[in-house]
Every structure is written in C-alpha cells, then in structure tokens.
Write a protein that binds this DNA or RNA. Structure first.
Length: 247
DNA sequence: ACGTATGTTATCCT
DNA sequence: TAGGATAACATACG
C-alpha cells in the first residue's frame, strides 16, 4: 500500500465514485487521535494526496491518513479487522484499517509544499537539487527516502531508481556529479509514474530490475543488505552500480 | 508454515 | 544530550 503511487490509486478509485462534495453521514472506527464528531455531517471539499499521505479536506481542517507499512482501505466493503476510520456517504462508504489518522487545522496549503510531492504536477526538480546540496555528506539511499525531499518515494522506488541510474546506494551526495544527481531526481519521478501504471496493471513486481531480485537485468549477482543511516534493505548490483567516492 | 516487508515514530538505551 | 537500537502496528506474500 504505502508508496506515493499507491495513494494516487486510492484517489483515482474515489474519483471514480463521483462523490462530488459529499456530506459525511456516519463516522465509524476506533480511531483515538481525532474527535470523530468533528467530521459528522460535514462536507468534504476534496480528496488530495501528498507523498504517502491521503488527505480528506473539509472547510476548516483536513484528515490525514498514513497507511504506514500494513495499512489498507476498502470501498463499499468491510472486513473483520476493526475499522480505524469509516466514512459513510449517501451511496458509498470508505473504510480505513491499520493506519495513522491525524487532523490538520486550517488551510491544507499551509501544511504542505506540493513541489516536494513526487506524484504532484507541482513537483520541482530544482528544489530537490537544492535540498540535496544542503545535505552533502548524506548517502543517496537515505536522501531518496527523505520525505521532505522526495515525498512519496519508498524503498522499492529507491532501489529501482538507483539501479536504473547505475548508482551505488552508499555514494555520498557530495561525490555524485551534478548531472548524475539530476538524473536520479528525474528518474525518481519517472519511475514513480511507471510504478503507478504497472501497479494498476498488477504487473509491478514483473518490472522489478533489482528489488527482490537475485540477478540484475544483465544476469549479474544482486546483493541484499541494510545500508545507510536508514538501514533499509538495499538491493545492489555492484557491477552495474557505481559507488562514487571522494576525488 | 514461516520469515519477511512498500513506513514511521515513541521509547529506551548508551 | 545526541544518537542509535528496538518495538510497535497487523497483513499479505512467496
């Protein structure tokens, strides 16, 4: 569920319901982080997303859903797991499970910079370059997971982007040529949209070139190891992927 | 059947 | 005190 493109899929599914600006007729769920009364009988203006966050925008506040690692949702269905937050409209119902729910006060635009959402039409390559230059000693594998820079990028995207741009995860930003850095940023956005397309087709895993692979596309051995400050799984072809080091 | 994992954060420890 | 390690969440997949 988690990475940015998966949130777009949810947003698209809700758009397909043609809800317009629906009024919340019932609020269910065992959520403890928000006051459910706040939503009852209120009108939803829009459903948005930022990175891995799904946003339900009301007049004066926004409900933020984060699915973390295990979160799921069902539209016009329920399951046995206790629902965390369930919203019922005139015709339809959306149920969220195992997720983190928060309420953001005021205008949603005051909470988010849409330029750093990898799936946004406002995504800004130059801003990403600027932010990367501010953390020169970070490893690129950590930087790609930094939600303040690459909102929506997760571990799959990270691994595939580094393989496709032929960069070793333990290259430090200051050692990567600027042209290569820009290529990584561009590919992060490009691969995220491929991810979206393939996920919709149910063929995402077929297109993995390094993530959870034993051999890369050139039939080289792929190693799997927790690398960087974030200690997330990195799948690396040490033949195809270059580790940039100080001159 | 079991081990692993698309994520983040609070808390405990050094 | 800054940082790192750990646990927690609950489910699907191979």
């Amino acid at each position: 569920m988690p990475e940015g493109p998966s949130i777009i899929i949810l947003k698209d599914l809700i758009a397909d319901l043609h809800l317009g600006k629906p009024k919340v007729l019932e609020v269910a769920g065992n959520v403890t982080t928000i006051d459910k009364e706040r939503l009852l009988h209120q009108k939803i203006n829009s459903f948005k997303s930022w990175g891995k966050h799904f946003l339900i925008c009301f007049d004066d506040f926004t409900i933020r859903i984060h699915f973390m690692l295990f979160g799921t949702y069902l539209i016009n269905e329920t399951k046995k797991t206790p629902v965390k937050l369930g919203l019922t409209f005139k015709q339809d119902q959306i149920n969220f499970y195992t997720c983190k729910v928060d309420l953001l006060e005021g205008d949603i635009n005051d909470h988010y910079d849409w330029r750093s959402d990898i799936m946004s039409e406002h995504w800004d390559n130059k801003l990403a370059v600027k932010k990367l230059k501010e953390i020169p000693s970070s490893y690129i594998c950590d930087a790609l997971l930094d939600q303040d820079i690459f909102g929506g990028v997760g571990n799959i995207i990270k691994n595939e982007v580094l393989y496709r741009t032929k960069v070793h995860p333990l290259s430090k930003i200051e050692d990567i040529p600027i042209a290569k850095l820009k290529a990584i940023i561009k590919e992060a956005q490009h691969y995220s949209f491929d991810f979206l397309k393939w996920k919709k087709e149910n063929t995402l895993s077929k297109h993995w070139e390094v993530y959870q692979q034993k051999k890369c596309t050139k039939d080289h051995q792929v190693t799997k190891k927790e690398l960087g400050k974030t200690k997330r799984q990195c799948y690396v072809c040490t033949i195809c992927q270059k580790k940039y080091t100080p001159k």
